[in-house]
Amino acid sequence: MATSKHWDIFCKIVDNFGDIGVCWRLAKQLQSEHQLTIRLFIDDLNVAKHLIPTLDTSLAQQTIQNITIVSWSTNTTFIHNAQVVIESFACELPPQYLAVMHPDTIWINLEYLSAEAWVDDFHAKNSKRGQLTRHFFFPGFTSKTGGLLREHDIVNTKQEHLLKSSTLPAHDHLNVSLFCYPHAPIASLLTAIANSNQQVSCYVPNSNILSSVAKFFERESLHPGDQLTYKNLTLHVIPFLSQDDYDKLLCSCDLNFVRGEDSWIRAIWAGKPFIWQPYLQTEQTHIKKLHAFLNLYYSDCPPTSKESIFALHDAWLSQEISSPTWQAYLIHLDKIKQYARQQSYTHSQQTDLATKLVIFSEKMIKNIEENKV
């Protein structure tokens, strides 16, 4: 039987970069901070390469940063399983892998992050699948959940390092990073920024929103290195960034527009104001998730600042950002900055996701061994 020091993580890249972003960070932390041997199965190496630049998409298996990365396809052969298996975001383990699993395998389905109240009750519940037991692990913002993905030193040591290593030019502009889904009201945001009384430098990583940005500037296309100015807006198109470089950008900006899960959490650890765009879901579920987060995260925020935060988030989701909404947020930006720093520190005092996963798996293994005696 494989030891509990060997873990397998399965990642199916459904859309964008959130799945692989979370799985790659988690794999690196489990290896570096908990000395675990990690195999990371990825079904789309071409997308993963955006976040893991040294990845060779032609190889079936390779080792990067002490992580064994395996190209996962319907032809993948599984000889043995790890003692602990993480099925990320209900990606469904392959039947060939399930066939080699044994009843003592610690099978964890790592769910998406949510601040909704029901997460506290559903975290760590399990269900049976034949002789196997599947545990449901919910990341979250309270002590009753699986915690947040966070390296141990990120708020104190790493944030100072990232700030010192900033590559943004020195000027008196407000620095804003923009990373969002294509359906966001990008044109109205850029219009509001351009018409505000604050000069803004907006940094846009190369992604699928560039066509919308190009349309705003009446250009056919945009490419990394392009710089465009309209009224009080100066927009910089930058390359798609590695995770480390993206973290530096978040720490260097005064305000970050983020999306999904990975960039959302990194914005929290950057300790800077941010506007979060949740992944679009049916039946307005994404709006419920947004409001659950805002109500929890900003519960102690001064009422006037909170009002401007909620208004800008709702406008970002409702397809229209007006100049007054943008300006009202800027008026409270200094207070929001203070609150963001405080919240970043507060949440960093909680046990992180990787550590909670290790504690949970060790507890499960201990229970299995005791039941055998």
Rank of each mutant, 00 (worst) to 15 (best):
M1G: 02
S4T: 10
D8H: 13
I9H: 07
D15M: 05
G18M: 05
I20H: 04
W24S: 07
A27L: 10
K28P: 05
S32H: 09
L40S: 07
L40C: 02
N46S: 13
K49R: 14
H50P: 00
P53Y: 11
T54P: 03
S71C: 12
S73L: 01
N75D: 13
H80I: 00
H80F: 02
V84M: 04
F89K: 07
P94S: 10
P95E: 12
Y97C: 07
P103G: 11
D104A: 03
D104Q: 11
L110R: 07
Y112R: 04
F122W: 15
S127V: 06
T133H: 03
R134W: 08
G140Y: 00
T142E: 13
I154M: 06
K158I: 15
H161P: 05
H173Y: 13
L178V: 13
H183G: 02
P185A: 11
S188W: 04
A192P: 06
Q198N: 08
Q199P: 01
C202D: 02
P205Y: 06
S211N: 08
S211M: 03
F216R: 07
R219A: 10
S221R: 06
K231R: 02
P239G: 10
S242L: 05
S242Y: 10
S252M: 12
L255F: 12
S263H: 12
A270S: 14
G271M: 05
K272Q: 13
W276R: 08
Y279V: 10
T282G: 07
L290W: 04
L294Q: 08
N295I: 00
S305R: 01
E307D: 13
S308T: 15
H313G: 07
D314S: 15
L317C: 08
Q319D: 15
Q319G: 13
E320G: 01
E320L: 10
I331G: 09
D334A: 06
I336D: 08
K337Q: 15
Q338T: 07
T355Y: 05
I368E: 12
N371S: 11
V373H: 14
V373K: 08
